[in-house]
Design a protein around this nucleic acid. Structure first.
Lengths: 202, 202
DNA sequence: GCAGTTTCCAACTAAGTAGTTGTAATTGTT
DNA sequence: AACAATTACAACTACTTAGTTGGAAACTGC
């Protein structure tokens, strides 16, 4: 049998993503990751170093690529609302990224890994936002993105909130989606309007 | 020395709150909780049962009381914006509740504990929202509250997002607060307006 | 002050846990 | 084919963990 190092690495990273996503850094088990990947756990230490470094690799791989998977397209507040809707849908079908993001925030705090790549990705999103809402400040663009991420990513991580607050009817997900999209539209429209008439708040 | 059961329980609950808040259910250590409380860990099992049940007790104690600590006061969209601002400030000085909320969401999913009490608290908040925005539907009120909670609670749990998205200047917290308050105001105002002219979207 | 109960703790147990090691199989190179 | 390097794994180690136990100290009612 031929050794396929890249395939083994990929299997481990995939299994680790699933395990860390479900249980976080402290709750994840190296043995479980190795078993799920069908690989001996010693390979983890050869390829990734240790549990923390494997978590790093998972975070960087999962969060960096997400930025490209759901792009900001079009112009005006509608474009930002549409982006929020697509991000919401994406997280609804695959909660990996939001869960990893919150695991990282809770377990790592401000100790963020893979900074250069992620800062570049965020800057790219900020620039897309500025392009969609001409005249908006860089800080307002960042704030709008934080708002979008907060709304879209919190939903799958706090699944109980829907039932607790809104009763959890059959079409809850759609209603929540509509609320997020509308909220983002309103916030983006206000920033766009302010950018055209800056005297109002100065 | 006189035994003070309630005090011992309180010390354990306080230490457990701090430990679970910082490290979550999987990351928390029974030994650390007992040591921080200055109490033998065997007491935990006598008073609370086991680690999971202690986590339950912490969650219920911390999240249920929060609802009363930051009330919804006044009328109109301004009242909801003001509520969001006070909730944001509260979480900024003490991130216990948001962190526990997200730990619970990540580690427990929809398996929520203390349901009756928490549902009552949420229903009370929904009623306050309906009182502040007359004519609004119960579901829209719940959605607005989810929006507020998402925005206010995500901020302290994702401390790195500010730096990543908005550069993290000196007055970042204040700017983020202003963005949250304004977003909530816009969302609440839109719902209030719709409640007065329901034909627009029907 | 004395039996019965409760609070408390040091020490213990059984089951994981991350990380390592020794060794065999595979591969590329000469 | 002989060699060194790489990939792989079963077994192992040192340590941590949640949960338990046996008995001492303090309280209660009499």
């Amino acid at each position: 049998m031929a050794w396929d190092t890249e395939r083994t690495k990929g299997l481990l990273l995939e299994a680790a993503t699933s395990e860390f996503c479900a249980r976080g850094l402290a709750g994840a088990r190296i043995d479980r990751i190795a078993a799920e990947a069908g690989v001996n756990k010693e390979r983890i230490y050869q390829y990734f170093g240790n549990k923390n470094a494997l978590f790093d690799a998972v975070i960087v791989a999962a969060l960096s690529t997400l930025m490209d998977e759901v792009p900001i397209e079009g112009n005006g507040p509608e474009a930002m609302a549409d982006y929020a809707g697509r991000l919401f849908d994406h997280h609804q079908t695959d909660a990996t990224a939001p869960r990893l993001l919150f695991w990282e925030g809770l377990e790592r705090g401000t100790d963020v890994v893979g900074l250069p790549k992620r800062m570049a990705n965020c800057a790219s999103k900020v620039n897309s936002t500025i392009a969609a809402l001409p005249g908006i400040s860089r800080e307002d663009a960042g704030d709008l993105l934080i708002t979008i991420v907060s709304l879209c990513d919190a939903a799958p991580v706090l699944p109980a909130l829907d039932g607790l607050m809104a009763g959890g009817g059959p079409d809850r997900a759609e209603r929540r989606r509509a609320a997020v999209v509308r909220t983002v539209y309103l916030a983006a429209a206000a920033l766009a309007a302010e950018a055209k008439a800056p005297a109002a708040t100065a």
